[in-house]
Simulated assay, not measured.
Amino acid sequence: METQNSNLKYLKAKNKVEKLKRFYTHAVVYLVINTVITTVKVMNNMNNGESFDQAFYDFSTLATWLVWGIALAIHAFSVFGLPLIVGDDWEERKIEKLMNDELRKDKYN
């Protein structure tokens, strides 16, 4: 029983680390790709006669930061905020409930 409990804790910790790793990867990709997109757009707009300020603060230049930033914020909430609201053991409780429901269903069939 103790070994099973420690295995469960290990799997739970591993799952959390994988979620964090995916979020950090998402954040790095967000920064790198948006920096490249912004640089290319600003340089292109400046070649078309705009000043740096006009090119940089153009909505189309900042739109990718905004839209993708909303997606990144949702991802951050799912990794950091949601466990604070529903509790760290939410997944475990939900799995247990679903397993019990299946057992009851099997019992009556």
Rank of each mutant, 00 (worst) to 15 (best):
D106C: 05
L66C: 09
Y10I: 03
L20T: 06
N45L: 03
K16Q: 08
K97H: 06
D106N: 12
E18N: 12
R22W: 11
L72Q: 13
F80A: 05
K97F: 03
S51D: 06
V36C: 12
W65E: 08
E50D: 07
L8T: 01
K9M: 02
E102N: 00
T35M: 13
K9Q: 04
D88Q: 14
Q54I: 08
Y10Q: 08
V86L: 13
F59A: 07
K14H: 15
M46L: 01
F80P: 00
A27T: 14
V86K: 11
H75S: 15
Y108K: 09
V17I: 07
K97D: 02
K12V: 01
T64G: 09
Y57G: 11
F23Y: 14
W68Y: 10
G87P: 08
D89G: 08
D89I: 01
A76D: 08
P83I: 02
M99E: 11
D88P: 06
G81K: 02
Y57R: 03
D88I: 10
R93L: 08
V86Q: 13
V86M: 10
L98N: 12
S6M: 04
L84N: 10
M99G: 00
H26F: 15
E18H: 09
L31N: 06
V17S: 12
K16R: 14
F23R: 03
I85F: 15
T61H: 05
D101W: 02
N34Y: 05
G81R: 01
T25P: 02
K12I: 02
D101K: 03
L72S: 15
E2F: 02
L82F: 15
A73W: 08
L84E: 07
Y108H: 06
T3Y: 01
V36G: 08
V79A: 10
N47L: 06
T61S: 10
I37H: 04
A27R: 06
Y57H: 09
L103Y: 02
Y10T: 04
L82V: 15
E96C: 00
M1T: 10
E92I: 07
A63L: 13
E91Y: 14
A27M: 12
V36T: 12
G49A: 04
N47Y: 02
T35S: 15
S51A: 03
I95R: 00
E96T: 06
